[in-house]
Design a protein around this nucleic acid. Structure first.
Lengths: 241, 241
DNA sequence: ATTGTGTGATGCTATTATAGCAACATGCTT
DNA sequence: AAGCATGTTGCTATAATAGCATCACACAAT
């Protein structure tokens, strides 16, 4: 949903910042330009601008990494969102052997896990994962896709393969069921089973999930019950309507 | 250190994003424009552009908050930096009654705490603090200021009051001592004592600290020893030179 | 229900910032 | 030392942006 006059420089600059954050290692300006299929001068100027304001940092090997300004932005936005303060303690209480608890957000056609832990995962590791995963194969992704309109889903997957679904119509059928049930189930490659429920509803700002290698229907129902309980604790804690 | 041709739109857009992240609550486009002393149309367009790419999100009350793209950026940059994975577990081991452990970065003339905990603080709270504090009054801030050149420090505090110091020369004298000692001490309002050491050296990318209400010289020496030990564990873990 | 006020957002167009080409500086490998 | 890839700059034509005026919407007070 672009505004009447989008700021293209800002869009380009944030593409650069995203590539920088997502690269996971120091990256040079030309390498980043190739990654984004961007003219090198432009990439360099955007990177140097980011570095000038402290959001990126150039190292002695001339490559760039996120800088203190990015960490401050990160810390402030996570803090302001309340995702950590309001959600993670509840997820931690759900952990037990054989189970994974997770929270994530929908980012384009992927799920980004902000928290992902089994009962042995130290909290800093659980919160530092930043893993991206196809949304259509993830319970969290599915429940968030279900919160979009059908047209939004069609636009999102326009000219794009959908992991686990033969067509967008198949996906929309699944999403319709999710909306009816109030929760999503995913069994990626039948390796494990995930159930997920969304947080918030206008918009659904994140989703929480429980996974196990195998779940009976009874275990699914129990897990859904637990997630819905956590959801309502979070909802009342945040004073949401 | 501006590049030859900085991108002003990106600078403006990131000012908007920073104000959004730092506001801690939903904020409207005109309110944000007033906060930044920015023409309202410009602020609205930058905000709507951020919303279009998912870094901001507009709520039904028409106000804006950080969006999923911001959380993904946050998660990826913290993950890529290794600050959480490499540092937090070591800090947790230093916790004991009567002691606070912290990690932070220098952001302009302030310290931003990325981790701040006493021995009872749950890890998500410790990592969700995002607190800003005058750098000159903070051990972490001081040790990071000491990693800048004197000219950089003068530029940073040009026409600016320095919390806890009568002049920039007084601060520079303190920073010179910190460089010699290899660690910083701060006693803000004599409420507590903090010792801090920096991580990395070119650049110093963060600093770690221990605080107690009172520290004898022996306790200071012991804390410094512990921090230096953690620093060298982190340094070898990260393969830094 | 109406009025007043503040808000979020758009269209238009003059102006200014940006993009890309060509070139240069730097670093690394052979 | 030469070759190659890298990071970066200056210049200028062009496209994007900024701000004014205006409109749509929401909320509070009467």
């Amino acid at each position: 949903m672009l505004p009447a006059q989008p700021n293209q420089s800002l869009i380009d600059g944030l593409s650069v910042l995203q590539a920088l954050a997502g690269s996971g290692k120091a990256i040079g300006s030309r390498e980043l330009a190739r990654l984004l299929d961007m003219e090198p001068t432009k990439a360099n100027r955007l990177l140097k601008t980011l570095a000038a304001i402290g959001v990126a940092q150039q190292q002695p090997d001339r490559k760039y990494v996120p800088g203190p300004g990015m960490h401050v932005l990160s810390a402030q936005s996570l803090h302001g969102s309340g995702l950590i303060r309001d959600v993670v303690p509840h997820l931690e209480k759900l952990l037990q052997p054989g189970r994974i608890a997770a929270m994530g957000v929908l980012w384009r056609d992927q799920t980004c896990y902000l928290y992902h832990a089994n009962h042995e995962t130290p909290t800093p590791m659980a919160m530092g994962a930043a893993e991206l995963y196809p949304a259509s194969q993830s319970g969290i992704g599915r429940v968030m896709l279900a919160s979009l309109s059908n047209q939004q889903v069609r636009d999102l997957y326009h000219n794009r393969e959908i992991d686990g679904f033969a067509s967008v119509n198949d996906l929309l059928k699944e999403l319709k069921q999710i909306r009816t049930q109030g929760y999503a189930i995913a069994r990626p490659e039948n390796r494990f089973t995930t159930v997920a429920v969304g947080l918030g509803s206008n918009p659904t700002y994140a989703a929480i999930a429980l996974s196990s290698s195998e779940m009976t229907q009874q275990q699914i129902d129990t897990s859904v019950e637990e997630l819905i309980q956590v959801k309502s604790l979070i909802t009342s804690q945040r004073g949401e309507g």
